[in-house]
């Protein structure tokens, strides 16, 4: 199956605008909000959400980067290593409302690892999860609070998110996957 484009740059822009409104609505424009992007593609998404909220409400939301590799439960199953990179959270997460941001939620294992990593850093008031795509097939009792697009997919398919900051283009693709499945 050739890769099929499910959403383009305009769609992604609208999704970011909608999710940032949802975040503001649910948290009453709280001053305790903070975004933490999960490496790799959660980081530019968190940046976009933050600048969108700045644009709508003039609110400066702090932004952090989380690498949760050290908390994964599937290290031994992975190929030659994805290298760990530094976590950079330049604020105290205690009592903050943390919005964790990732591109795709699949089994939920990345989200679990990210939550564990965060809790080792402090005690946030709450942790909410925002994703661009929910593709189903959860293996853990975890659900995102904000979803850009629900894409029911078969396990033999892959959802690929490209973001201009990382890949030079904004798009969501669905492809058939030949290789062992990895969480997107």
């Amino acid at each position: 199956m050739t890769p099929k484009v499910i959403a383009g740059a305009e769609d992604i822009r609208r999704i970011i605008a909608r999710i940032s409104h949802e975040i503001l609505e649910r948290n009453h424009s709280s001053k305790d909000l903070a975004f933490i992007g999960m490496r790799t593609r959660g980081v530019p998404l968190a940046q976009r959400l933050a600048s969108s909220i700045k644009q709508f409400e003039g609110l400066d939301v702090p932004l952090g980067i989380l690498d949760f590799s050290l908390y994964r439960d599937d290290l031994a199953h992975q190929g030659p290593g994805p290298l760990v990179r530094a976590t950079n959270i330049p604020f105290n997460i205690d009592n903050e409302i943390i919005i964790l941001v990732d591109d795709v939620i699949f089994t939920g294992r990345s989200a679990r690892a990210a939550i564990d990593a965060l809790i080792d850093l402090g005690r946030p008031a709450s942790i909410q999860l925002a994703v661009l795509v929910d593709r189903g097939h959860r293996e853990l009792p975890i659900r995102p609070d904000y979803v850009g697009k629900n894409i029911p997919s078969s396990k033999h398919e892959d959802i690929v998110v490209h973001l201009s900051e990382v890949d030079g283009i904004d798009e969501i693709l669905i492809t058939s996957s030949q290789e062992t499945m990895k969480e997107g």
């Binding site: 590799s69 908390y71 760990v84």
Partner: peptide
């Protein structure tokens, strides 16, 4: 690059990860 990530862990109040 991995050592940079580890330095960040060493700077935390709780210097422990489950890797």
């Amino acid at each position: 690059s991995v050592a940079e990530a580890m330095r960040e862990v060493m700077g935390r109040p709780v210097k422990k990860t489950p890797a």
